[in-house]
Computed example of a mutant assay.
Amino acid sequence: MSSTGDITAAERARTARPLPATDPGAGLRRPDVVPPGTPSEDVGYRGPTACAAAGITYRQLDYWARTGLVEPTVRSAHGPGTQRLYGFRDILVLKIVKRLLDTGVSLQNIRIAVAHLRGRGIGDLAGMTLMSDGASVYECTSYDEVIDLVQGGQGVFGIAVGAVWREVEGSLAQLQGEHTDTGEPTPQVHPGDELARRRRDRAV
């Protein structure tokens, strides 16, 4: 394999290690800078809305919550008549879990990946790529790590968390949430309004 500077591709590939089963938040972290446009943590989404944004069924959502795979962090269900409320990060994780399951990753490795995602700052997630060889899940934070995993035969598929982030953000902009302190519904955004906002953001 070709080398870049004094570091070979094989050496760089070793930096993208499988996610640890314990201490998921360990390792070097970048400052927790929240990307522009991140939905407020004061907004929650009910189960059907979370399902629509994540592309899963309500049966999956309920099963994952009951088994502790992905539980709502805004509000759990306590008895009959109470509604679970999921936050933006919860829905992002739900969508990633769905993609990992669809590609054949084991439930054990998915649990490790979920714990790892939960342990990282919200600003870390947008620049992260999850790779899997079917046996392990890897975190890559640079283009070189992704390429070296693929060239080394370790990477079978990858999930760019930032791309999933944008998909969830776009879906939630058009769906109904509620403010956690007042219970008031959030305004829905017309797709044309969202496109205009993104253009304004890029122009700044």
Rank of each mutant, 00 (worst) to 15 (best):
122 I>D: 03
187 P>W: 13
52 A>Y: 01
176 Q>E: 15
156 V>P: 02
43 V>L: 05
77 A>E: 10
58 Y>P: 11
43 V>F: 00
22 T>Y: 04
124 D>G: 08
144 D>Q: 14
41 E>L: 08
5 G>T: 07
48 P>R: 15
172 L>G: 04
173 A>G: 14
139 E>P: 01
14 R>P: 00
66 R>T: 06
17 R>E: 13
50 A>F: 02
178 E>G: 12
174 Q>R: 15
43 V>E: 12
202 R>I: 09
168 V>G: 01
147 I>L: 15
46 R>I: 13
86 Y>T: 11
18 P>S: 03
85 L>F: 06
41 E>Q: 13
157 F>G: 03
138 Y>K: 06
74 V>A: 15
84 R>E: 06
202 R>D: 13
127 G>M: 13
133 D>E: 09
199 R>N: 12
88 F>S: 01
86 Y>A: 08
86 Y>W: 05
100 L>A: 01
114 V>F: 01
133 D>I: 09
172 L>M: 02
108 Q>E: 11
97 V>W: 02
26 A>G: 06
117 L>M: 06
190 H>K: 12
59 R>K: 08
172 L>K: 07
103 T>S: 15
40 S>D: 08
153 G>V: 04
76 S>H: 12
183 G>D: 00
54 A>S: 06
48 P>S: 13
19 L>H: 03
67 T>N: 08
1 M>G: 15
174 Q>G: 10
86 Y>G: 00
3 S>M: 12
56 I>T: 05
59 R>Y: 08
99 R>C: 05
192 G>N: 13
19 L>E: 02
12 R>K: 11
75 R>Q: 13
160 A>H: 11
45 Y>F: 12
3 S>T: 14
130 L>M: 00
150 V>I: 14
65 A>S: 09
156 V>R: 15
51 C>E: 05
162 G>F: 00
33 V>N: 10
172 L>C: 05
157 F>W: 09
2 S>D: 14
58 Y>T: 15
122 I>V: 14
54 A>Y: 01
142 S>M: 04
101 L>T: 12
184 E>F: 06
5 G>E: 06
142 S>V: 03
145 E>G: 07
107 L>S: 13
59 R>S: 08
75 R>Y: 07
33 V>M: 08
146 V>H: 05
92 L>F: 01
120 R>V: 03
46 R>T: 09
40 S>Y: 04
45 Y>T: 03
13 A>K: 05
165 W>M: 08
183 G>N: 02
2 S>V: 12
76 S>N: 09
101 L>W: 09
145 E>F: 02
136 S>H: 15
86 Y>R: 05
52 A>S: 07
24 P>M: 01
41 E>V: 09
166 R>Q: 15
20 P>G: 09
202 R>L: 10
141 T>H: 09
87 G>V: 04
56 I>Y: 04
175 L>V: 00
155 G>N: 05
54 A>H: 01
131 M>I: 12
62 D>T: 10
84 R>H: 05
81 G>Y: 02
30 R>H: 07
102 D>C: 01
116 H>N: 14
127 G>V: 10
10 A>G: 07
66 R>N: 11
92 L>W: 00
